[in-house]
Protein backbone atom coordinates (compact mmCIF):
# COMPACT_ATOMS: atom_id res chain seq x y z
CA UNK A 1 0.00 0.00 0.00
CA UNK A 2 2.75 2.33 1.01
CA UNK A 3 4.81 1.74 -2.09
CA UNK A 4 1.78 2.20 -4.30
CA UNK A 5 1.35 5.79 -3.16
CA UNK A 6 4.96 6.58 -4.02
CA UNK A 7 6.91 6.75 -7.22
CA UNK A 8 6.52 8.90 -10.27
CA UNK A 9 8.90 11.65 -11.18
CA UNK A 10 11.56 10.39 -8.83
CA UNK A 11 14.36 10.66 -11.33
CA UNK A 12 12.93 13.66 -13.07
CA UNK A 13 13.82 15.91 -10.16
CA UNK A 14 17.13 17.54 -10.95
CA UNK A 15 17.03 20.28 -8.34
CA UNK A 16 19.63 19.75 -5.65
CA UNK A 17 18.07 22.24 -3.29
CA UNK A 18 14.66 22.24 -1.73
CA UNK A 19 12.81 25.50 -2.35
CA UNK A 20 12.06 26.11 1.35
CA UNK A 21 13.68 23.45 3.51
CA UNK A 22 12.27 22.90 6.99
CA UNK A 23 14.51 21.64 9.74
CA UNK A 24 13.59 18.43 11.54
CA UNK A 25 12.92 20.49 14.67
CA UNK A 26 9.92 22.03 12.88
CA UNK A 27 8.41 18.53 12.66
CA UNK A 28 9.12 17.72 16.31
CA UNK A 29 6.61 18.01 19.13
CA UNK A 30 6.55 20.77 21.74
CA UNK A 31 8.51 18.77 24.33
CA UNK A 32 11.44 18.10 22.01
CA UNK A 33 11.44 21.68 20.74
CA UNK A 34 11.59 22.88 24.36
CA UNK A 35 14.41 20.46 25.16
CA UNK A 36 16.51 21.67 22.22
CA UNK A 37 15.80 25.34 22.92
CA UNK A 38 17.02 25.17 26.52
CA UNK A 39 20.80 24.81 26.50
CA UNK A 40 20.76 23.37 29.98
CA UNK A 41 17.99 20.84 29.42
CA UNK A 42 19.47 19.83 26.04
CA UNK A 43 21.48 16.69 26.89
CA UNK A 44 23.57 17.16 23.74
CA UNK A 45 25.28 20.05 25.52
CA UNK A 46 26.96 17.48 27.78
CA UNK A 47 28.82 16.19 24.71
CA UNK A 48 29.65 19.77 23.71
CA UNK A 49 31.03 20.37 27.21
CA UNK A 50 33.16 17.21 26.96
CA UNK A 51 34.34 18.35 23.54
CA UNK A 52 35.49 21.65 25.00
CA UNK A 53 37.58 19.79 27.57
CA UNK A 54 39.12 17.59 24.88
CA UNK A 55 39.81 20.67 22.72
CA UNK A 56 42.02 21.97 25.51
CA UNK A 57 43.69 18.63 26.34
CA UNK A 58 47.05 17.68 24.83
CA UNK A 59 46.97 14.54 22.66
CA UNK A 60 49.43 12.32 20.81
CA UNK A 61 53.22 12.40 20.61
CA UNK A 62 53.15 16.10 19.77
CA UNK A 63 51.69 16.72 23.21
CA UNK A 64 49.67 19.53 21.64
CA UNK A 65 46.00 20.25 22.18
CA UNK A 66 43.62 21.46 19.47
CA UNK A 67 43.75 24.83 21.23
CA UNK A 68 47.55 24.96 20.91
CA UNK A 69 47.11 25.69 17.18
CA UNK A 70 43.49 26.76 16.77
CA UNK A 71 43.27 28.79 20.02
CA UNK A 72 39.73 29.80 20.92
CA UNK A 73 37.26 27.62 19.04
CA UNK A 74 34.54 30.25 19.44
CA UNK A 75 36.36 32.33 16.82
CA UNK A 76 38.59 29.85 14.93
CA UNK A 77 35.84 27.24 14.40
CA UNK A 78 32.98 29.67 13.84
CA UNK A 79 31.29 28.83 10.54
CA UNK A 80 33.68 25.96 9.75
CA UNK A 81 31.20 23.11 10.13
CA UNK A 82 28.67 24.94 7.92
CA UNK A 83 31.04 24.35 4.97
CA UNK A 84 31.52 20.60 5.51
CA UNK A 85 31.87 17.99 4.10
CA UNK A 86 34.60 19.40 1.86
CA UNK A 87 37.59 18.20 -0.14
CA UNK A 88 40.77 17.80 1.89
CA UNK A 89 43.38 19.53 -0.25
CA UNK A 90 46.31 17.33 0.79
CA UNK A 91 44.65 14.01 -0.03
CA UNK A 92 41.97 15.09 -2.50
CA UNK A 93 39.44 13.11 -0.45
CA UNK A 94 36.05 14.24 0.77
CA UNK A 95 36.04 14.63 4.57
CA UNK A 96 33.41 15.58 7.10
CA UNK A 97 34.13 17.16 10.50
CA UNK A 98 34.89 13.75 12.00
CA UNK A 99 37.36 13.07 9.20
CA UNK A 100 38.91 16.51 9.52
CA UNK A 101 39.47 16.03 13.26
CA UNK A 102 41.12 12.65 12.67
CA UNK A 103 43.35 14.01 9.89
CA UNK A 104 44.39 16.84 12.18
CA UNK A 105 45.19 14.33 14.92
CA UNK A 106 47.36 12.24 12.61
CA UNK A 107 49.15 15.07 10.82
CA UNK A 108 49.51 17.67 13.52
CA UNK A 109 49.21 15.91 16.85
CA UNK A 110 50.88 12.60 15.91
CA UNK A 111 47.90 10.96 17.58
CA UNK A 112 45.92 7.88 16.62
CA UNK A 113 42.63 8.62 14.88
CA UNK A 114 39.58 8.39 17.10
CA UNK A 115 37.15 5.60 16.35
CA UNK A 116 34.02 6.71 14.54
CA UNK A 117 31.11 7.07 17.00
CA UNK A 118 33.47 6.95 20.00
CA UNK A 119 32.48 9.31 22.81
CA UNK A 120 35.63 11.38 22.18
CA UNK A 121 35.03 11.88 18.45
CA UNK A 122 31.33 12.64 19.02
CA UNK A 123 32.22 15.18 21.70
CA UNK A 124 34.85 16.95 19.59
CA UNK A 125 32.61 16.93 16.52
CA UNK A 126 29.67 18.29 18.51
CA UNK A 127 31.91 20.98 20.00
CA UNK A 128 33.31 22.08 16.64
CA UNK A 129 29.90 22.01 14.92
CA UNK A 130 28.32 23.88 17.84
CA UNK A 131 30.59 26.87 17.09
CA UNK A 132 28.59 27.31 13.85
CA UNK A 133 25.18 27.13 15.49
CA UNK A 134 22.78 29.58 13.88
CA UNK A 135 24.92 29.97 10.75
CA UNK A 136 23.51 28.93 7.35
CA UNK A 137 24.84 25.77 5.71
CA UNK A 138 27.36 26.92 3.11
CA UNK A 139 28.42 23.89 1.07
CA UNK A 140 29.23 25.00 -2.46
CA UNK A 141 29.44 22.91 -5.61
CA UNK A 142 32.69 23.02 -7.55
CA UNK A 143 34.70 20.87 -9.94
CA UNK A 144 36.45 19.06 -7.10
CA UNK A 145 33.37 17.95 -5.17
CA UNK A 146 30.99 17.55 -8.12
CA UNK A 147 31.56 13.77 -8.55
CA UNK A 148 30.76 13.32 -4.84
CA UNK A 149 27.62 15.45 -5.13
CA UNK A 150 26.53 13.42 -8.14
CA UNK A 151 27.06 10.14 -6.31
CA UNK A 152 25.27 11.50 -3.28
CA UNK A 153 22.34 12.46 -5.45
CA UNK A 154 22.25 8.99 -6.98
CA UNK A 155 22.13 7.43 -3.53
CA UNK A 156 19.38 9.82 -2.47
CA UNK A 157 17.17 8.74 -5.39
CA UNK A 158 18.16 5.05 -5.37
CA UNK A 159 15.50 2.60 -4.22
CA UNK A 160 17.04 0.00 -1.96
CA UNK A 161 16.49 -2.61 0.71
CA UNK A 162 13.67 -5.07 1.19
CA UNK A 163 11.26 -2.14 1.38
CA UNK A 164 12.57 -0.82 -1.92
CA UNK A 165 12.55 2.79 -0.75
CA UNK A 166 14.77 5.72 -1.64
CA UNK A 167 15.48 8.67 0.67
CA UNK A 168 13.32 10.85 -1.57
CA UNK A 169 10.27 8.57 -1.19
CA UNK A 170 9.89 9.28 2.52
CA UNK A 171 11.75 12.50 3.16
CA UNK A 172 10.57 14.53 0.19
CA UNK A 173 7.49 12.98 -1.38
CA UNK A 174 5.94 12.17 1.99
CA UNK A 175 7.55 14.74 4.27
CA UNK A 176 5.06 16.19 6.72
CA UNK A 177 2.78 13.15 6.53
CA UNK A 178 2.15 10.75 9.37
CA UNK A 179 3.79 7.36 9.68
CA UNK A 180 2.18 5.74 12.75
CA UNK A 181 2.70 8.23 15.59
CA UNK A 182 5.42 10.09 13.78
CA UNK A 183 5.60 12.97 11.33
CA UNK A 184 8.06 12.26 8.53
CA UNK A 185 10.73 14.96 8.40
CA UNK A 186 12.62 16.20 5.36
CA UNK A 187 15.69 14.32 6.50
CA UNK A 188 18.16 17.17 6.99
CA UNK A 189 21.45 16.71 8.80
CA UNK A 190 21.83 20.25 10.10
CA UNK A 191 21.37 19.33 13.79
CA UNK A 192 23.99 16.56 13.97
CA UNK A 193 25.67 15.35 16.06
CA UNK A 194 22.29 15.30 17.78
CA UNK A 195 20.83 13.84 20.94
CA UNK A 196 18.18 11.32 20.07
CA UNK A 197 15.76 10.12 22.72
CA UNK A 198 15.71 6.71 21.03
CA UNK A 199 19.51 6.44 21.44
CA UNK A 200 19.52 7.99 24.91
CA UNK A 201 22.75 9.54 23.70
CA UNK A 202 24.31 11.88 21.20
CA UNK A 203 25.11 10.31 17.84
CA UNK A 204 26.56 11.24 14.48
CA UNK A 205 24.74 11.87 11.22
CA UNK A 206 26.21 8.61 9.91
CA UNK A 207 24.56 6.74 12.78
CA UNK A 208 21.26 8.36 11.83
CA UNK A 209 21.71 7.55 8.14
CA UNK A 210 22.62 3.95 8.97
CA UNK A 211 19.39 3.74 10.99
CA UNK A 212 17.47 4.72 7.83
CA UNK A 213 19.26 1.99 5.85
CA UNK A 214 18.25 -0.42 8.57
CA UNK A 215 14.71 0.93 8.49
CA UNK A 216 14.29 0.07 4.80
CA UNK A 217 16.14 -3.23 5.41
CA UNK A 218 19.14 -2.34 3.28
CA UNK A 219 22.77 -3.18 3.99
CA UNK A 220 24.21 -0.46 6.20
CA UNK A 221 27.38 1.20 4.85
CA UNK A 222 30.26 1.52 7.31
CA UNK A 223 30.73 4.64 9.42
CA UNK A 224 32.81 7.17 7.50
CA UNK A 225 32.40 5.21 4.24
CA UNK A 226 32.51 6.98 0.87
CA UNK A 227 28.81 6.24 0.40
CA UNK A 228 27.75 7.98 3.61
CA UNK A 229 30.15 10.88 2.99
CA UNK A 230 28.78 11.45 -0.50
CA UNK A 231 25.23 11.30 0.83
CA UNK A 232 26.16 13.69 3.67
CA UNK A 233 27.52 16.16 1.11
CA UNK A 234 24.42 15.91 -1.05
CA UNK A 235 22.16 16.38 1.98
CA UNK A 236 24.12 19.45 3.11
CA UNK A 237 23.77 20.99 -0.35
CA UNK A 238 20.08 20.08 -0.46
CA UNK A 239 19.54 21.73 2.94
CA UNK A 240 20.98 25.09 1.85
CA UNK A 241 19.03 27.81 3.66
CA UNK A 242 18.89 25.94 6.96
CA UNK A 243 21.16 26.83 9.84
CA UNK A 244 23.39 24.61 11.96
CA UNK A 245 21.56 23.49 15.12
CA UNK A 246 24.18 21.26 16.74
CA UNK A 247 23.48 19.79 19.18
CA UNK A 248 19.92 19.16 18.06
CA UNK A 249 17.40 17.07 19.97
CA UNK A 250 15.41 14.52 18.03
CA UNK A 251 12.97 11.78 18.83
Amino acid sequence: MFAATLGGGVFAAEAQRLPAPKSGIAYAGADIRAMQADDFANPGMLWVARGEKLWNTAAGRSNKSCAACHRDAASSMKGIAAGYPRIDVASGKLVNIEGRINRCRERNQSADPLQYESEELLALTAYVAHQSRGMPLAVTADAANRPHLERGREIYYRRQGQMNLACVNCHEQNAGRKLLAETISEGHGNAYPAYRLEWQATGSLHRRLRACYYGVRAVMPAYGSDELLDLELYLARRAAGLTVETPGVRR
Binding site: F40, A41, P43, M45, L46, W47, R50, Q200, A201
Partner: peptide
Protein backbone atom coordinates in the same frame (compact mmCIF):
# COMPACT_ATOMS: atom_id res chain seq x y z
CA UNK B 1 19.26 24.97 40.96
CA UNK B 2 19.90 22.67 37.99
CA UNK B 3 22.19 19.75 37.34
CA UNK B 4 22.71 17.54 34.28
CA UNK B 5 25.07 14.56 34.38
CA UNK B 6 26.42 12.51 31.48
CA UNK B 7 25.56 8.96 32.52
CA UNK B 8 23.84 6.07 30.67
CA UNK B 9 21.73 5.14 33.74
Amino acid sequence: LRIAIQHPM
